[in-house]
Design a protein around this nucleic acid. Structure first.
Lengths: 231, 231
DNA sequence: TTAATAGACTGATCCGAATCAATGTTTTTC
DNA sequence: GAAAAACATTGATTCGGATCAGTCTATTAA
C-alpha cells in the first residue's frame, strides 16, 4: 500500500483515552460533582442530532453507535466501547446543538459531564486540554480512513473491515455474539441489509467465517484481511 | 429536513479562524520567530501522506486541497482557502506522520510553524488551545456532512453541493473561473470525470448553470439548492 | 396460546454510475 | 511552430448493489 498508510472502515478510534489521568485530585472531585451517571437500555437514544448540547458524554461501560441521519438514511460515524467519549464536538462553544445522534447497542452506562464544568477544566488544565486535542485528532484520523473506505471500497471489502473491527477491537475474540441486526450491520458497512446477508453467506460458503444466527466466528483471519485490502 | 440539520458535501469548514487573535504580543513574536513562509505553485505538493510531521501549516493566501489517497483513488477531505489551517491532526503527539496529503490548486503561500513551538503555545495559552479545539471541532462537523453526502446522495446532488460551495464559500461570486480540471472536480464530488461532464452538461441544458470552458456561472441558485436537498 | 410484528433470508429486476473506447481540443514542451 | 501530452467530450457497455416482493422464522404483545 502507498505511503505506509492502510485505510480501514473500522469504526473505533485506536486512541486510549487518558485525559482523566491528567486531572488533579481537586479537579477530579470537581468533575465528579458535575457528573451524573445514566443507564440506557439497548436501542435507547443517548443523544439526538439537532437537540441542544448541555453535557459531554462518556461511555463508562456498554456499546453505542454515533451516527448522522437524514430522512431514512443513517450513517454510523463510529461505535463507542467502554472508556470513550461519544464524540467531543460538543465542547466547542460554537456547537450549540448535537451534530450527531447516539444510540445504545447494548445496555450501557453513560457519564454525563456538565458542559460548563468540562470547559472550565479545559481552560484551567493545559495537560487535560492537550489530551482532549489528542483524542479529537485520533477521532478525525479514524474518520478519514472510514470515509475513504465507504467511498472507494466495494461491499465485501467494507464488510470485511467491519468484521475485523468487531473481532479486533470490540469483542477482542474471534468468536462473538453479535448484538446487532443485519440492518445495523448494514449501517456500519454502508450497505443494505440484503447485501449484508448475501455477503455474509458468501463468506460462510468460502469458510472465511462461520455463522449461526447471531453468533459469528472468524475462521480465516488472514483471508479477511486480504479481502479488506483488495476490496 | 429532520432535526434541523441539513447536510451538504461542501468542502469548507465555516469556522472563522480566530486563534492568532488569542495570542499576546510576545507569543505572536515567538510564533513568527518559529515560522517560515513558503510559496507553492499550482499542482505542487504541500505535504505528503505518510511523511513525518514537523510543522503546522497555515494558508496565508491561495487555495489547496487536503486529501487521502490509496492506489489510484484520491478522496478530498476539504479544500483550504485563505486563513485556514491545512488540517490540525499534526498537533497530536501521537500523530507522527501526516494522515493526508495537501496540494495547491493555485499558486499559494503557506506559513509553516514549527510543531514544537505550536505545541508550546497550546500548553501555555489556554485561550489559544480552546480556539484550536473549536477549529478542530468545526472541521469534524463539516466532515460528517460531507461524509454523509458522499455516501448517500446521488451524483447530481453531490455535484450541486460542490457548485454551491464554490459560489458561496470559495469564490463568493455566482460567476467564477474554475482553476480545477474535471478530474479534480470529480475528486471533490466523489465521481468519475466523465460523470462530472455529463452532469454539468445536464445542468447547462436545464439553465441551472452557464458553462464556457473553465468559466462557470450559477444561473438558478435556488434550483441548485433544491437539487442538493433532494439529490 | 395466538396474533402481531420485527427480523432473516432468497430471488428477480432495475438503475446509477463506473469503465472502456474513441475523438476532438487545449495546453505544454522542445 | 510542430509534436507531445494533458484534458474535455461523447457514446456504448457493464456491473455492483439497491430496491422490490415474497416467504420463513423468531420475538413480542395481547
Amino acid at each position: 500500500m502507498e505511503n505506509g498508510v492502510r485505510f480501514t472502515g473500522c469504526t473505533i478510534s485506536n486512541h486510549q483515552c487518558l485525559c482523566y489521568e491528567k486531572l488533579t485530585k481537586e479537579e477530579h472531585d470537581f468533575l465528579n460533582a458535575n457528573s451524573v451517571w445514566i443507564k440506557y437500555k439497548r436501542g435507547e437514544m443517548i443523544c439526538k442530532q439537532g437537540s441542544f448540547v448541555s453535557h459531554v458524554m462518556y461511555m463508562e461501560h456498554g456499546l453505542a453507535k454515533v451516527f448522522v441521519e437524514s430522512g431514512s438514511n443513517a450513517l454510523v460515524l463510529r461505535i463507542i466501547p467502554d472508556g470513550n467519549f461519544l464524540g467531543l464536538a460538543a465542547i466547542s462553544e460554537q456547537q450549540t446543538t448535537f451534530p450527531y445522534s447516539g444510540m445504545a447497542y447494548v445496555d450501557s452506562e453513560i457519564r454525563q459531564v456538565d458542559i460548563k464544568a468540562f470547559r472550565q477544566l479545559l481552560r484551567q488544565n493545559t495537560e487535560f486540554a492537550t489530551e482532549v486535542i489528542n483524542i479529537m485528532s485520533a477521532n478525525s484520523v479514524q474518520l478519514y480512513g472510514r470515509f475513504f473506505c465507504l467511498t472507494y471500497k466495494q461491499a465485501f471489502g467494507r464488510l470485511a473491515d467491519i468484521l475485523l473491527c468487531l473481532t479486533d477491537r470490540v469483542f477482542k475474540n474471534s468468536e462473538f455474539n453479535l448484538p446487532l441486526t443485519r440492518k445495523e450491520l448494514g449501517e456500519l458497512a454502508g450497505m443494505s441489509p440484503e447485501t449484508v446477508i448475501r455477503m455474509l453467506k458468501e463468506f460462510s460458503e468460502d469458510r472465511v467465517i462461520r455463522m449461526e444466527g447471531k453468533s459469528i466466528e472468524v475462521l480465516d483471519y488472514n483471508k479477511l484481511k486480504q479481502i479488506s485490502d483488495t476490496g
